[in-house]
Simulated scan of single mutants.
Amino acid sequence: IHPRKPLMNMGEVARKVSEATGNDSILVTDVGQNQMLSARYYRFKSSRSIVTSGGLGTMGFGLPAAIGAKIGNPDRTVCFFTGDGGLQMTIEELGTIMQYGIDVKIIILNNNFLGMVKQWQDLFFDHRYSETPMLNPDFTGVAAAYGIAGERVATREELDSAIRRMLDHRGAYLLDVQIDPDCMVFPMTPAGSCVTHIMLNATEKY
């Protein structure tokens, strides 16, 4: 959450959003790196404050889940973290948000990759990227077509003020945050390996 690299990572964004809400919002995750890192670095002051599929969901879970969380808890802020790939699985639910005026804060941790698959291709397949680079649409433009406000954040210096604008806005908001494509989730245990073999960083050899 205190990176030294110039590009932003997922953990720092999750922690900053959490702190800006007073650690009192509901976290909803999609599936992938965004899920693992937002669940790890988001903070909570009360129970019933996270909605995630755990290991049983698929990409696209998060947006309809966030809608349900807000309907069930209309007085609490709902912050939904997703990846650029996962959002496009159920992006049509922006229409539901528009139709019913649902106030969901959507934070895209956008690394222009299918990040979890890329991580495995980086660590175990010599960076041979097969179907993981993403050519993404203008997410703020798509949101605007549904009457949803939003903005794109490309630098760390822009992040705090953008988060505040999102939280101060009445109604749904989409924050498209550009993330370091080399951001990875650790610790991890490689598939088929003993649970005592825990990788702590990308320099460890498998």
Rank of each mutant, 00 (worst) to 15 (best):
146 Y>A: 11
173 Y>V: 10
157 E>L: 06
157 E>V: 00
158 E>W: 07
190 P>F: 03
193 S>M: 00
140 T>Q: 01
184 M>G: 07
163 I>G: 06
176 D>R: 04
195 V>E: 07
142 V>C: 08
148 I>K: 05
132 T>G: 03
181 P>R: 12
132 T>K: 01
195 V>A: 06
133 P>W: 02
188 M>Q: 11
197 H>C: 02
201 N>K: 00
135 L>E: 12
152 R>V: 15
166 M>E: 10
190 P>C: 09
150 G>H: 13
192 G>E: 00
155 T>W: 01
161 S>E: 15
157 E>R: 03
143 A>K: 12
176 D>P: 01
178 Q>Y: 04
181 P>C: 07
161 S>P: 03
177 V>C: 03
199 M>F: 02
195 V>D: 14
204 E>I: 00
164 R>A: 14
174 L>E: 08
137 P>Q: 14
180 D>T: 03
205 K>C: 00
133 P>A: 07
165 R>I: 11
183 C>D: 15
132 T>Y: 00
147 G>E: 13
133 P>D: 10
191 A>D: 00
193 S>A: 05
200 L>D: 13
169 H>T: 15
146 Y>S: 09
180 D>A: 08
134 M>K: 08
152 R>M: 13
134 M>F: 11
149 A>Y: 06
193 S>R: 01
152 R>K: 12
182 D>Q: 09
155 T>L: 02
174 L>D: 10
